[in-house]
Amino acid sequence: MSFLSYLITGLSLGSVYAIIALGYTMVYGIAKMLNFAHGDVIMVGAYVSFLAIGKYDTPALVACLLSVFACTILGVLIERLAYKPLRSAPSLAVLITAIGVSYFLQNSAQLLWGTDTKVFPAMLGTNQLVLFNGELMISYVTIATIVACIIIMTVLTLFINKTKIGKAMRACSEDKGAAQLMGINVDNTISITFAIGSGLAAIASVLLCTAYPALNPTLGSMPGIKAFTAAVFGGIGSIPGAFIGGLMLGILETFSIVYISSQLSDAIVFGVLIIVLLLRPTGLLGKKIRVKV
């Protein structure tokens, strides 16, 4: 029974990674950039919902919505101010700018909210679902996380495949020039992608902080790197890939903590990533791009 309980914990952690990874992968797919500031958007989202609940005593759902709203605006602002001027610049320049944005967000948070670790309030209570005569206990937070991830995944897949904006996004990620010739507003499409990615980051932040309730200005970096790994794991640019990659990474991390060693779990996770990339150089579901002369 303990195996099942670890598996569920892993799935829940993986769901959070998957939601963050979706943001990475969508932005990469369309703007071909590694957005290292994504992890810090998560941090901002966490602080917004923390302040909403702690200071203004709003209900959990309202706090969550506020956080999504704030992060969406933040994401679009970052894109417009920092990344848009570099649309045709070499990718390394954009990467460094993203790092600059990440420093900026971390240090602003430090100035605004201090460096001390704050405790995130329990949003869904600490109730647990008891199954099999108490042999299996699952907290409602865990269930909510997994359900949220599945809903997001379904809605996002439908959005990308069925709506006009989704079609525009796919077109932009294939070929920006051709998309523009077809009358697609590339700038707006990219902004929408950033908005969705950042909104997802906000949801992830609430889920993450409910599960691990310690708040500080660098809380986003490690989940950010892990989710980025998850996106690569599944094949960066691929939405189902991010989902599968996230879940696998979460399960892998939980299992290596429980069965091998909590200190070595990071080494194991990244080691598996390297092996996966050696066997499938573009991730599990990544597209292979042939270079022609």
Binding site: A82, P85, L86, A89, P90, A93, I96, T97, I99, G100, V101, Y103, F104, N107, S108, Q110, L111
Partner: peptide
């Protein structure tokens, strides 16, 4: 306290100024 903030802003501005 503002030094790292200014550092970050400088980084972004330099990148944009040299690459845009």
């Amino acid at each position: 306290d503002y030094r790292m903030l200014i550092y970050a802003v400088l980084l972004i501005v330099i990148m944009i100024a040299t690459n845009n």
